[in-house]
Structure formats: structure tokens, C-alpha cells
Design a protein around this nucleic acid. Structure first.
Lengths: 190, 190
DNA sequence: GTGTAAACCTAAAGGCTTTAGGCAAACGGG
DNA sequence: CCCGTTTGCCTAAAGCCTTTAGGTTTACAC
């Protein structure tokens, strides 16, 4: 009798929670309807379809992540900023694996919000690189390198690809970041 | 009337082809049955279920990739080997996006073949690193770094994340590889 | 040839997605 | 306060995918 109070936003938020619990792949209109104790068809007034739902979760996660990254980078520069940004990505992925997976979702056509969230992330990386004073094309190279290392490392770690190696390598991440910092300094405008 | 001649292997191979055409996600028992013009249920004599099918495709792709990597690394050392290995991954992903995606598939419990294929890849990376003469834990760090950069770069490029930046950055990849080589030389045992 | 194992089939149950159309609750205006 | 409209949620239904059970036919071995 009482209404559940569905909204696109609430669906996206609940979807994000669910993703962290059972995996992003498993987040479906069906599963979400069960969570709200509502008929599946009812969701379709709030999201266009399954894709749209996932895209909204992706946007939510990407924005959330950009917020945290923004806060972490504020007031830092150079290696400090680099490390702070990198840790935001890694910590976020570990704390919210489903949301992080959502982050990689590619809808058939991206929404403006999704594009905007993506832009925020490249802006942040660009901001971190400011201190290194790179000229083009080094700047683009650096954005791509950082994106690759952050995303690559976090994905592989999340997938458990690192769990079969020597346990004394818990400090790999900071050492990689340190090396990236050195590398960028070398790329720096002389 | 005539039999289709199904086999686990043929299913995996056809699945790999299909993955490259329509995306790994879209590879399902249903879709594959259509390809062979056979009833869906018939597949279930050859693969346990959808997961198993995908795991077999993953194994196929991972082995194929390891074969190519192995051939590329043979007879090379140091920076040459590094570049050759890296290009195998990147070229493979561009030529076979569906197979590459399959490579990232994580079944509930990995098959021995899948584990073995994974092992071949770390062995290859280790072989490439031999020339750099790294001690532990630098060796583990290096394996993780290379894995992260290769996988990260290739994923992002495949996802189109790089297509919005300046077109004069077509040479990012070789420049990144060159820097990785320098980095590893710095890590080298003094 | 004939028996048997494998390959393939039909049937059926159950889940997910999506659309169409209907009832009822909430909410604002008179 | 009540009445009309909007909006939220519902039922119904069609279509597709997965998986299991059990039957038939093909092919090959002896």
C-alpha cells in the first residue's frame, strides 16, 4: 500500500550499494526491484532500461570518485599530489569494488553527465601534473601513463592477480608511485 | 540431418571469433548455438554452462596470447624484449578485442588450464626482466608495474579513453615503453 | 549387421527485460 | 474539503536466455 518512493537517484544509489555487495554485473532491474520490494516493471518509470540504470550507477561512482580525488589533491602538489590521487583510486576500488567496476562501464551512447564526470577526472590528473611543468606532448603522455598505471594496477589487484606473489611485496604500490614521480621529473621541461 | 560436429574446442574457437565480432559479453550458449545451427541444449554436452564456455574462451585467448608473446620474446633481451612483449599485448588487443576481453574473465573457480596460462604470462614477463638483473622485491614490483601499464594502457585505449586527446600523441606508447626501460635500468642491481 | 556411445533433439521450467495499459495515491486549486 | 490531474506502482504478456531431463539418431567398432 505504502509507496516505495522510487527515484532515478535512489535507484542509482541502491544499485551502487548492490554492486559493491554482489558485483556490478549482477545489478539488474530485477535484483533492484527485489531490494525495493516492488514489481520490476515499476522501475521502468524511473530508468529507461538496464543500460540506463548501469550508466547512472557509473555516473554516480565516477562523480563520487572525482569528489574524493578533488578533495585529496586540494592543497597538494608534485609527488604529494600524485600519491594522494593514486591512493584515492586504489582505496576507492578496494572499498567499493562494484562501484569501481561501474566506473568502467561503457554505455552505447554516453550521457552528458557521464562525459562530464570523465572530464573532471582528466582535469584532476592535469592539475596534478601542473607541478611537473610538462610540455606537449609529454603532458598527454603523462596523462595516459598515469591513467594506465592507476587503472591497470587497481584492476589487477582487485582481480587477485597479485595475490600469488611473494607476501613481502606489500610495498609495491608506494614504490611504483615513487618511481612515477621520478619519471615525471625527468620528463619535466629542462 | 548431418551433424554439426561440436566439440568443446570448436565451441571455444567459435566463441572467440564471435567475441571479436560482437563483444565477449554477447557470447552466450544461445548465440553460439545459432552459429552452429543447432539447438541450444546440444551445447550442454560439450560445455558445463555459460561460465564454463567463457572460461574456455578465456583459456584459449590467454594461451594464444602467450604463444605470440613467447615467439616475440625469443631471441631478444632488455629493452628490445620489453618492447616486443608490450607490442604483442597491444596488437593482440586491437586485432582481437573480444578475445582480449575474455582474457580478463574470472570464473568462480579457475580451471588448471587457465591457471597454467596465467603462469606462462608471468614467466614471460620474468624472462623479459632477466636482463635488468633485478633483486627481490624489485622483481615483483617490476612484474606488477609492467602488468599494470600493459593492461591499463591497452584497456583504456580499447575503451576509447584516449581518443579525445590531441592527435599528435600517436607516439605515446613507444615513449612510455622507452621510459619503462629506463626506469627498470634504474631499479637494476647496482 | 548390430550394439553401444556419442551427438543431437524436444520439452519444459525458471529467470530477466521490456512494453502496454490500468488502478490508486498524492497533491494542488478552487 | 473535494476533485481533477499527475505520478507511482501494479498486472499482464511477449520474448529471450539458461539449464535440466529424457528421448532419438548417427556413427563407429567389433
Amino acid at each position: 500500500m505504502a509507496r516505495a518512493g522510487l527515484t532515478s537517484d535512489r535507484l542509482a544509489r541502491a544499485g551502487a550499494e548492490l554492486a559493491d555487495e554482489v558485483g556490478f554485473e549482477q545489478v539488474t532491474p530485477s535484483a533492484l526491484a527485489r531490494q525495493f520490494d516492488v514489481q520490476v516493471a515499476s522501475l521502468y518509470s524511473h530508468v529507461r532500461n538496464s543500460q540506463d540504470l548501469k550508466a547512472r550507477i557509473a555516473t554516480l561512482a565516477l562523480s563520487e570518485l572525482a569528489d574524493e580525488a578533488s578533495a585529496a589533491v586540494a592543497g597538494r602538489a608534485g609527488g604529494d599530489a600524485l600519491i594522494a590521487l593514486a591512493n584515492v583510486y586504489r582505496d576507492y576500488a578496494r572499498a567499493h569494488p562494484g562501484r569501481y567496476a561501474a566506473t568502467r562501464f561503457q554505455p552505447d551512447e554516453a550521457s552528458p553527465e557521464l562525459i562530464e564526470a570523465g572530464r573532471r577526472h582528466s582535469e584532476l590528473t592535469r592539475a596534478v601534473l601542473r607541478a611537473y611543468d610538462l610540455n606537449e606532448p609529454a603532458q598527454t603522455d603523462a596523462i595516459r601513463l598515469l591513467g594506465s598505471v592507476f587503472h591497470g594496477y587497481v584492476s589487477l589487484e582487485l582481480a587477485g592477480s597479485f595475490s600469488h606473489s611473494s607476501p613481502d611485496s606489500a610495498e609495491t604500490w608506494p614504490r611504483i608511485l615513487k618511481s612515477l614521480d621520478s619519471l615525471l621529473r625527468v620528463w619535466s621541461r629542462k
